[in-house]
Nucleic acid binder design. Structure first.
Lengths: 243, 243
DNA sequence: CGATCTTTTGACCCTTGTCAAAAGTTGTGG
DNA sequence: CCACAACTTTTGACAAGGGTCAAAAGATCG
């Protein structure tokens, strides 16, 4: 039932690094199994210790933090290839929660073996650090969006990010991609209210920049969105590690 | 002139992990020298490759990103013990810039040796990952502040963070700490305008929660600030690695 | 003692948030 | 297959938090 790392469908993609056969062999051993969860299932919980680490094999979800009074900030959108639980692995506990939005399949690793990994597989350890540093990079960009951009700029920026990731993962079919989130999720991602998000979205639609119907997103004018988003120098990584 | 790692003043602090003598010996070798820079000096530049990595030994600064039209988002405040340049080390280039605000002393490491570190010093490699994961954690919190909190909540939250870090670094003297930034810096950190930051700051002062005079900050009512900031569960780390 | 930078104030108003309700969707059980 | 509950999207009206502009008041410094 479970996919063996030797035939991991993600590894085929151009956006992921090549892996030597010994690396693949090690990952096969490191992988303890697969977890299948349905929409709405919490995968990791803020503040909790998790004995497990995951790599998303299939499906989408959200990472988020909640304030005591219920306000929620979505940190980012979880897509295939994302590595989950690193904070719990090194820090002891998670700084945010992760929840599946669609049905989702995760490769499961054992947290306690991460130390072995560092000791015996420096190349893989380096990859983990790469991922952490890259995530840090992304969060800096996201912070800049929320802190500096106007509502319409933020939404344009957000969709460009999502679109680019989907493109790399080959998730775009017929010019559209699956986008299974609610407007509320988008609002919480960008630090906007639901109502204002809705109205701003309408403007983008009216201007013919994008459509979002039946859970599928379509970018119709990429260039115009980029202009709107005031994108800074965006060096897109050719490929990244996969765990 | 340069401080040898064996007598690193930071290592004495409770907030940093103990280091074995062999670890110290390795760091001594890893350290290539010291860099002394004055206020306003750029240490790392967004988008640039840097052949060097740094650990802040003394002084304060800012990490920030700028948009093409000049808007600036401060990612966080740089304090002693902070490790700078990881993104450039693994990614090739920095996702943000770093600038010294006060005079600053930095320990200098050679980027190219980081791979040796991963190979021969898994414990130190693990520490680097720990730092990256913890930074990620912090950025998530900061994003939540900017995205969800009101102006007064953000400022309260921000000062609490800064105060806590200063406390750990034993930087509080006479109930006050050095805080060498401008209101504009604070505004750019929290995603607020200068004017509004100024007015909100005045409210906090009037309520007797804090003072900020002559570049020194004083928290007068810590509990009230925490209530204002709607702090979520804040597990403070007993100690962290130092590089 | 100007020149320059930072902080403070006041006036004004625009972007975004809040409230409320209608309209559209989806799913469930009878 | 309909009816109803529950959820999401859309609209409109209104309020306000926070932004912008401009200028005065304080600092800093050569």
């Amino acid at each position: 039932m479970a996919v063996d790392c030797t035939e991991c469908p993600l590894r085929e993609l151009d956006c992921f690094d090549e892996m030597s056969s010994s690396e693949v062999a090690f990952m096969s051993e490191f992988k303890k199994g697969e977890l299948n969860v349905g929409p709405g299932t919490p995968v990791l919980v803020e503040g909790a210790r998790s004995p497990q680490l995951f790599t998303v094999l299939r499906g989408m979800g959200l990472r988020y933090k909640t304030l005591e009074d219920g306000r929620r900030q979505v940190i980012n959108i979880v897509m295939p290839g994302d590595f989950l639980g690193l904070q719990a692995a090194v820090d002891g506990e998670m700084g945010h929660s992760v929840e599946a939005t669609t049905e989702m399949t995760l490769c499961v690793f054992k947290r306690s073996e991460i130390w072995t990994l560092f000791k015996n597989h420096p190349d893989r350890a380096y990859d983990i650090t790469w991922l952490a540093a890259t995530e840090e990079h992304f969060l800096g960009e996201a912070m800049t969006s929320i802190g500096q951009r106007s509502a319409i700029e933020r939404i344009a920026w957000g969709f460009l990010q999502i679109w680019e990731r989907a493109r790399q993962l080959d998730l775009i079919e017929n010019e559209t991609m699956e986008f299974p989130f609610r407007q509320q999720d988008l609002a919480d991602t960008l630090g906007l209210s639901l109502v204002h998000t809705n109205k701003t979205l309408a403007k983008l639609r009216e201007r013919g920049l994008l459509t979002w119907i039946d859970g599928r997103l379509r970018i119709r004018d990429h260039a115009a969105l980029q202009r709107l988003a005031v994108v800074s120098h965006g060096p897109i990584h050719p490929s990244r590690p996969l765990l």
